[in-house]
């Protein structure tokens, strides 16, 4: 259930028992989340084998956020986010093959091998990228909102960001102008409780991140349980409708948790967070809790689940095979895409 702010604890307080919805829709949500999960697990394997290099941030545990929010968008809407972008790209409709090839640094990657894990881009789905500088993409999102309004369109842009973003200047400058100029932007804080190893309560002088919206007149601050995909869908649908019909920005804090380390070099637990804490959150797994609820409610059989797993596994394996076979960019690509040679 989406609640309109005023919760005091920064912790996400998920409920273990999930509701079920329309069976066909639930299956789609489950499929979308499972694809991200299995894809990211495969990415972890590829990284260990040296097929993927550099910084790589897995999304495992947070899948209900991208699935629940992006499902509310139209094809002509826009999505922008951070370096933790594989899941969002997949849900937005970037082909798993193109995302995997990008991770492998190959020519068929969605950014032609020039972006890598942190910089997925896709013009066809209005996926405006993974951005690597904390907070910097938040003004970009406001700029896209500005362009939509300038043209009198009714699209919206969703801007995903981590919890540490609420403490950086770019965030406040962007939210101020978005509220001032009534831009159709949904700002989404994925509160996974940590920015690298720093817990939210050691970084933010506010006990409820969505309250950052209080500083900006006309902006709603909303909190939602990010382990419950239905709650995410519902909260996002309302905020997106507000952006689309009233051109009003909202700040949606989604309480979630990452089940892996910050990046590939970070231990899963044992330093800044305990194994017990991790276990607790894993018991609220957004995918398995929905699956269990569906099986319990008989809207899905175990055989159907197994078929879904097999289908997703095949998609992910296909992505890997494709990426592995895709050529590296030729040396000539080095000097391409620095500038365009056109004028308007």
């Amino acid at each position: 259930m989406a609640t309109t702010k005023k919760k005091t604890s920064i912790k996400c307080e998920p409920v273990a028992v999930r509701t079920v919805g329309d069976p066909a829709l639930d299956r789609e949500l489950l499929q979308s989340m499972l694809l991200q999960r299995r894809f990211e697990e495969k990415v972890g394997e590829a990284y260990a084998l040296g097929k993927i290099g550099g910084f790589c941030h897995l999304y495992i545990g947070q899948e209900a956020v991208s699935t629940g929010i992006i499902a509310q968008l139209r094809p002509d809407d826009y999505v922008i986010g951070t370096y933790r972008d594989h899941g969002q790209a997949l849900v937005r409709g970037v082909a798993p093959r193109a995302v995997m090839a990008e991770l492998f640094g190959r020519i068929d990657g969605c950014s032609r091998g020039k972006g890598g894990s942190m910089h997925m881009f896709d013009r066809h789905t209005n996926f405006l990228g993974g951005h690597g500088i904390v907070g910097s993409h938040v003004p970009l999102a406001a700029g896209v909102g500005f362009a939509i309004k300038y043209r009198g369109g009714d699209q919206v842009i969703v801007c995903f960001m981590g919890d540490s973003v609420v403490n950086i200047g770019a965030f406040h400058e962007a939210l101020n102008m978005a509220a001032l100029w009534k831009l159709p932007v949904l700002f989404v804080i994925e509160n996974n409780r940590y920015g690298m190893g720093t817990p939210v309560e050691k970084a933010a002088a506010v006990d409820d991140l969505s309250r950052r919206a209080d500083g900006y007149t006309g902006m709603d601050g909303i909190v939602v349980d990010g382990m419950d995909v239905h709650a995410v869908c519902e909260a996002a649908a309302r905020a997106i409708a507000r952006a689309r019909t009233e051109s009003r920005p909202s700040l949606l804090e989604v309480r979630t948790y990452r089940f892996r380390g910050h990046s590939m070099s970070d231990a899963v637990s044992g330093t800044y967070r305990s194994k017990d804490e991790l276990d607790e959150y894993q018991s609220y797994d957004p995918i398995f809790s929905l699956r269990d609820a569906m099986v319990l409610a008989s809207t899905m059989t175990v055989a159907e689940w197994e078929a879904l797993e097999a289908e997703v596994a095949a998609t992910v394996q296909d992505a890997w095979d494709f990426a592995d076979a895709s050529p590296e960019p030729p040396p000539a690509a080095l000097y391409e895409d620095v500038l365009v040679d056109t004028t308007s």
Binding site: Y78, I80, L128, S136, V138, P139, L140, A141, A142, G143, V144, G145, F146, A147, I148, Y150, G169, A170, E173, A174, N176, M177
Partner: peptide, 13 residues
């Protein structure tokens, strides 16, 4: 910082 970024975002769109 904010309005320069708004400019860039609007140019992308």
């Amino acid at each position: 910082l904010g309005f320069a970024g708004i400019g860039v975002g609007s140019a992308m769109a």
